[in-house]
C-alpha cells in the first residue's frame, strides 16, 4: 500500500498530503504520525494540505484527531495551506475545525509552531518562578 511520507525538520514533523487519500490510507497516516512523534520526541506537527483539493467531514475529523492526539503527546499541530475553495466548502459543510491552528504556508506555519512551543515554555516558567 502506498504511504504518505513524514519528514523531520528540526524538531517538527512535516507531512505534505499530495494525493487523494482513501479512508484507510488516511487512518494509516494518523497511526504512523503518532508513532513518529513518540519515536522522535517531535514538538510540532505541520500538515501541509495546499495540494489537497477537498476536505470532507472524514478528513476534517482526521485533522482534528491528529491535533488532539498530538497535543496529548506534547506536540503542537498546525495545518497549513488550505485552498480558498476548500475552506469555503468546509465552512458550508458545517466544519470550522476550531480546535486546529492554521497558517497560510509552511514558513508561517513553522514560525507559528515555534511561537506556540516558546509560549508554552514561558507560561510554564512563569508558573514555576
Amino acid at each position: 500500500m502506498d504511504q504518505i511520507p513524514i519528514l523531520m525538520v528540526g524538531d517538527c514533523l512535516l507531512v505534505s498530503i499530495q494525493v487523494d487519500m482513501h479512508d484507510q490510507l488516511a487512518l494509516a497516516l494518523q497511526d504512523s504520525l503518532m508513532t513518529k512523534i513518540v519515536e522522535t520526541g517531535a514538538r510540532g506537527v505541520m500538515l501541509d494540505i495546499s495540494s489537497l483539493q477537498f476536505v470532507d467531514s472524514f478528513i476534517g475529523r482526521l485533522l482534528n484527531n491528529i491535533a488532539s492526539m498530538a497535543r496529548v503527546l506534547d506536540a503542537a499541530t498546525v495545518v497549513v495551506g488550505m485552498q480558498p475553495a476548500v475552506a469555503i466548502t468546509l465552512v458550508e459543510l458545517g466544519l470550522t475545525l476550531s480546535g486546529i491552528r492554521t497558517a497560510l504556508n509552511v514558513d508561517k506555519g513553522l514560525a507559528l509552531i515555534r511561537r506556540i512551543i516558546d509560549g508554552e515554555e514561558q507560561a510554564f516558567d512563569r508558573r514555576e518562578g
Binding site: V79, V80, G81, M82, Q83, P84, V86, A87, I88, L90, V91, E92, T96, L97, T102, A103, L104, N105, K108, G109
Partner: peptide, 12 residues
C-alpha cells in the same frame, strides 16, 4: 461570518 471562518481555516 463564513468568510471569517474560511479565512481562519486558511491561516488568516
Amino acid at each position: 461570518l463564513k468568510t471569517v471562518s474560511a479565512a481562519r481555516l486558511m491561516g488568516a
